[in-house]
Design a protein around this nucleic acid. Structure first.
Lengths: 347, 347
DNA sequence: GCAGCTCATGTAAACGATTACAGAAGTGCT
DNA sequence: AGCACTTCTGTAATCGTTTACATGAGCTGC
């Protein structure tokens, strides 16, 4: 049906071995034969069959990436980091999202065997998927945003420290009633951020805790606003467990005609690219998202080359407090005289 | 090295054929044998080799997706649509971004042969990549956002019509000097949108055209603001060729203490998810982004099943004008009395 | 005139699965 | 007994490559 190396060989009146050698530039070949083979291959539109090739070479030059979901800027940035680094090493990517169904996730992992040389698994769940029973022994894999798992490299973010830093920042600005909009239950990033929030709040004199449920989506932030406005004793600052929810909050407060940061300080977490472009620009905790993907990929390259004996790594990437305007702490800008916003500020 | 079906067969004291049958649930098998094989397979951590399997079955259950770049919300939405539809049909995805280098793009296309059953190629360039010489004859492929290419299904967006609709909307709001922030040169979506802008402007009495270069990135929008403020004769409305640039504009005008929509009306194109959450919510042209991916995938399924004889399709998806607040035309909301924003509005 | 070399090419064995076909064993029926 | 039939299992071909090894031709140098 489709044209194979045999067809090229027959047409060019040589053996398949010669065709293979010529097309891969290995071994010696007569100038004339070479040209003939190239010409025939082009005419027949011959494209080598990847599966067949990687079956014999035991190399796919491909990495697998397993994500919980492809939605949102966070994941797209992670993939971007991975892709950048992978292509630099001449590798392709198989991306699969698993929709947080455990059985499906593990089925996907199995399906990658023989198609990829290594995997990056982004598993935000509290307990990482069972790689051991779904992958051959010593299969190179790196876990992202995950609890450590023996036998595999893991990369984690300092969610705990980042959340603590943000709480201290808000406290230093004079806020005492600081609400926290939680992430989804069972999500490790979410629970670590919450733990950071709680721990920090406990150490601060006069700090009043308030936790509002959420799920990392813009809508959850939007809904949280309503809940907050119903309270008798409203918080003065709201710390969302991620930027998407913070943006939802921003939007909701604007619609309700409240001002940020004057009426409420709002902070996020992640520093997704859009965060600096919203109004007001979002104070947040920067997570080196693309860097995360890049580092994972580098580790994976090491794992693929290093073999089984290699020592596993367990990195925790630092986060960084990014102060913009949504909490009222940015360095004062001089308003253009006579601009409407100036009057507004004087109100 | 890694465990194969032979190892399982040997350990379970049966032939490889039996192991294959049992593990795939095909053909009859003794209860006892079945259990034994399952047990051995689990103990040995046997995972079938994808390449080997798909070599003989001539099925990979995988689609390839070729993107120009993984950056930004647009592409992540497209992939999401594709993924959703593909997984519904039990298919995986190989995603590759090609960084707008033609040679690399075509190398990627070739590399997919034998690894995927079909491809979706998102080629925003003016001239689509040369699929014919890089794919076997009759290889199923769908082109997205592309000029029609014979032999392949193509899906396009009504960029021209959408841009025209936006211009008419702005004109109807009283704007006459309407600037357009262009997309990157050589990009088809960008040039079609520009063509729509120009054509519409030409038909409208008193409309003054102004074109500012751009590249679809937030920064380009940001920079466009500066250029506009330097003009003696400033436009009253600015139509950005995509939402990212519109968001950059929003941010820049806010920093320069101008008001949107009071001082400048700003419109975008795409309706990326974040567009309704920025301040003010962005008036834009909705492109059914995820739907685009979904439709492409459905076509691809058809192409894979339908074979070569199948008639190729050439769809153009409609766009929709989404009126929010960034052009001042939204249905008036009643400001909460006494809210600071109210005073501000009266200024 | 032949060993020894290089160069160009062919032969055939992998790689790890699936599956058509055949064979063996058991059962029921005439 | 013999036959047909079912049920289970094994043998071996196959998918499309790569590559170790063999082969043969042509050359050099003695």
């Amino acid at each position: 049906m489709t044209v194979t190396i045999r067809d090229v060989a027959r047409e060019a009146e040589v053996s398949v071995a010669t065709v293979s050698r010529v097309l891969n530039g290995k071994g010696p070949a007569h100038r004339e034969t070479e040209r003939r083979i190239q010409r025939v291959a082009k005419r027949l539109r011959y494209v080598p069959h990847g599966a067949a090739r990687s079956l014999i070479t035991r190399r796919t030059n491909t990495f697998g990436v397993l994500l919980p979901d492809l939605y949102g800027e966070f994941f797209s940035e992670v993939i971007r980091g991975i892709d950048l680094c992978a292509r630099r090493g001449g590798f392709h990517l198989v991306v699969s999202s698993s929709h947080s169904d455990r059985a499906e996730t593990e089925a996907m992992i199995r399906a990658m065997r023989g198609r990829v040389d290594g995997m990056i698994v982004l598993s935000p769940e509290e307990t990482p998927p069972d790689l051991d029973s779904n992958l051959p022994k010593d299969f190179p894999a790196v876990l992202l945003n995950s609890a450590p798992l023996r036998g595999y490299d893991t990369i984690d973010i300092d969610n705990f420290g980042g959340a603590g830093a943000m709480v201290h920042h808000l406290y230093a600005l004079g806020h005492r009633r600081i609400a926290f909009v939680c992430g989804p239950a069972g999500n490790r990033d979410a629970s670590e951020r919450m733990r950071g929030y709680r721990t920090a709040m406990r150490t601060l004199a006069g700090a009043e805790t308030l936790e509002i449920p959420g799920d990392f989506g813009e809508t959850a932030g939007y809904d949280a606003c309503e809940k907050i406005l119903k309270l008798r004793r409203r918080p003065t600052a709201i710390f969302a467990a991620n930027d998407s929810m913070a943006i939802g909050l921003l939007c909701a407060f604007r619609e309700a005609d409240f001002l940020v940061p004057e009426d409420f300080a709002i902070a996020g977490f992640d520093d997704i690219p859009i965060a600096r472009y919203v109004t007001p620009p979002l104070t947040t905790v920067r997570v080196p998202i693309a860097g995360l993907g890049e580092r994972a990929t580098r580790l994976l390259f090491e794992a693929v080359e290093g073999g089984a004996a290699r020592r596993r790594r367990m990195d925790v990437l630092p986060t960084e407090l990014i102060v913009r305007e949504s909490c009222g702490a940015s360095p004062a800008r001089a308003p253009r005289p006579g601009s409407p916003i100036r009057k507004f500020r004087q109100t």
